[in-house]
Computed example of a mutant assay.
Amino acid sequence: MSAVLYLASASPRRRELLALLELPFELVLPDVEERRLPHEAAADYVRRLARDKALAGAALAPRPLPVLAGDTIVVVDGEVLEKPAHEADGLAMLRRLSGRRHQVMTAMALAHGGGCDGVLVTTEVSFRPLTEAEMARYWASGEPADKAGGYGIQGLGGRFVARIDGSYSAVVGLPLVETEALLRQAGVLSG
């Protein structure tokens, strides 16, 4: 079956989640700088990144198919926690999240027919208190190094999560319900 859309993402987690919608897709990998603008609100930032990735993916796509892209950020006390730059940064993030609530914002954008539609999903996540030893072991596992906020809910980091209010799949990186609705609205999915 030939692809009906492109996914503009190198994330294996997004690929796995999109596959659950049972749509044939191919990858395109645009290079988009992920830098927050001065005074840019967190929600605006993640929406802009998803849109920029979708539009950059559409410019690279070898065929005129819709292009889906996404971005995920972690926000605590109004501060965006990106992917950790190094171990000290990663451990500092985990300390900030320990025993507290934070937001995970995932934006999805679909470039199609000359336009770009999008959706933003915010999920509240609560961590249990973490010990220094737990955080050090977790960092040593290698898992948090490439994750927004320095953890992955779908892996070893899931054991730190005491509660989530919202979409689990959005925390992983692709909100299934909202992405399916976005694809239906654009006519990529039917029925």
Rank of each mutant, 00 (worst) to 15 (best):
R15A: 15
E16R: 13
A19T: 06
L20M: 15
L21H: 03
P24S: 05
L27P: 01
V28R: 04
V32F: 02
E34K: 02
R36A: 08
R36I: 12
V46T: 13
R47C: 12
R47N: 00
L49D: 01
R51F: 06
R51I: 14
A54Q: 08
L55C: 13
A56F: 10
A56I: 13
G57F: 12
G57C: 07
A59H: 13
L60D: 01
A61S: 07
A61W: 05
P62H: 12
P64D: 08
L65H: 07
V67A: 04
G70V: 04
T72F: 00
T72P: 04
T72Y: 02
V74C: 12
V75N: 03
V76W: 00
D77I: 07
D77M: 02
G78H: 09
P84H: 02
H86I: 00
E87Q: 15
G90I: 04
M93L: 01
L94C: 02
L97W: 08
G99N: 10
R101W: 14
R101T: 12
M108F: 03
A109D: 01
A109T: 10
L110V: 09
G114E: 11
G114I: 13
G115C: 09
C116W: 10
L120S: 12
V121T: 15
T122K: 08
E124F: 00
E124D: 15
S126K: 05
S126E: 15
P129M: 08
P129I: 02
L130A: 11
T131C: 09
